[in-house]
Computed example of a mutant assay.
Amino acid sequence: MHALGAPPSEPTPADRRRWTRYLVEERAEAHVYQQLAQRRDGEEREILLELAAAEGRHEAHWLELLGGEPARLPRPGLRTRMLGWMAGRFGSIFVLALAQSAEARSPYDAEVYATPAMRADEKVHFEVVRGLAARGRRRLSGSFRAAVFGANDGLVSNLALVLGIGATGVSSAFVLFSGLAGLLAGALSMGAGEFVSVRSQRELLEATRENGHGDASASDLDLDENELALVYRARGMDPDESLDRARRVVGAAKAGMAMHTGPLRTPVADGDDHEIVGSAWSAAISSFLLFGSGAIVPVLPWIFGLQGTPAILLALALVGIALLSTGATVGVLSGGPPLRRGLRQLGIGFGAAAVTYVLGLLFHVSAS
């Protein structure tokens, strides 16, 4: 066995305990990939099953060093248990994103009893899981972008609104009405804006989609002098290939034969573009609902009858928890540090609220 250094001639009890932990972690990770594979099909299913098989090889390595199945096994780590629970129930991109983070922290780099192949496997596993997670991110990018943007905008804008209005000294009923009006106006604006944005982007993509107008007129073109080749060059073909295709299309058309070569595809297929952009209705509905669900949070204290400082403090606490949660979720899905993303969201939200609160104090009015 080749390792980082020559392993001790006689393993210590601490070594055996460490091998046992590796064993249960490898089994748990293999189980995660098997659970995910059950919710996939085609190539993704095969890839996940291959990952599970690789974890099985690592498991066999530690079993061999231990001399067989240990009498007692510790429980897997909390993160691995959580992944297994989620994989069996959701099988979502969220699980793959967490698995990507887990694969990035391999303990084998400093483990003398791990083989070079095992250390290399872990690095490859990270890239494979990242690739699978990237597929899922592309599939949900349109609606997810609208959802996260809508939720955070609702939280921040309505928190800033109710704190700014509340700081002026108006009645609690007025603060509540302002918050609900801001919720409805913002949700409608977000939904309409997102619908127009995504629909416009899809229409732009549609305008770039090739059609058969050039090929349909091919029978009337001159065989040697025509501009059909320019159509193909404009779509991304090189000059020689464009000219060759134009001659074949014109020749076949004049001979009364149809060129069943299928539509010419540019490097990025139209369907892929539309999938990445997402559905206009889906984005609009997501924005409306998520803005509304975010914007209702700062208003809750006033809905339940609180007023003054207690209402403001509770609103800050509720919005703070929500901002930390959405920021951490984005961090997990993007492969970034969840805590840092959560704190960034919190700082932005509370910063905006502080500005409007100070302005409200400057314009303080009588509560009567």
Rank of each mutant, 00 (worst) to 15 (best):
R135K: 14
A187P: 12
A146F: 02
T208E: 06
T168Q: 10
S172I: 01
L132H: 04
L132I: 04
G154H: 06
S143D: 12
L161E: 04
R139F: 10
G193S: 05
H213Q: 10
S157C: 11
A134I: 06
F195T: 02
H125I: 08
S200A: 14
L183R: 12
F195Y: 10
H213L: 14
V129Y: 01
V196T: 09
S178L: 04
S171N: 12
S171G: 15
V156C: 13
L188W: 02
G166F: 12
S141N: 04
L183V: 11
L140V: 15
L188M: 04
L140E: 13
F177E: 02
A147G: 07
L140Q: 08
V198K: 01
S197I: 05
R145E: 11
A173M: 03
G179K: 10
E203N: 05
V196R: 11
R202V: 15
E210S: 13
H213D: 08
K123I: 10
G212M: 15
L159K: 01
F195V: 00
S172R: 01
R130H: 13
A120H: 14
L159Q: 03
D121S: 11
A160T: 05
G182Q: 07
G179Y: 12
G150V: 11
E127R: 04
R139P: 03
G169N: 07
A133K: 06
D153A: 09
G179A: 14
V124F: 02
I165K: 13
S178H: 06
T168D: 03
A146Q: 00
D121I: 00
G193E: 02
G214F: 00
G186K: 09
S171P: 08
F126S: 04
A185T: 05
R145Y: 10
A207V: 02
L180V: 11
E203I: 07
V170K: 11
V162A: 13
L159S: 02
V148E: 10
S141C: 06
E210C: 09
L184G: 12
R202D: 12
L204V: 14
E122I: 03
L180N: 03
G166P: 05
A160Y: 08
V175P: 13
A181N: 00
V175D: 02
L184S: 15
S171H: 14
L184Y: 13
L161I: 00
G142H: 03
R199K: 13
G142V: 04
V124L: 05
D215N: 07
S197K: 07
L161F: 07
A167P: 00
F144H: 03
G142Q: 04
G191R: 13
R199S: 08
G166R: 08
R135Y: 08
S143P: 14
R145F: 12
E203Y: 02
A146N: 01
G150Y: 09
E206H: 01
S172Y: 03
A120P: 09
G179T: 07
V170A: 11
L163D: 05
R130P: 08
E203G: 04
L163R: 00
G214Y: 02
G193V: 01
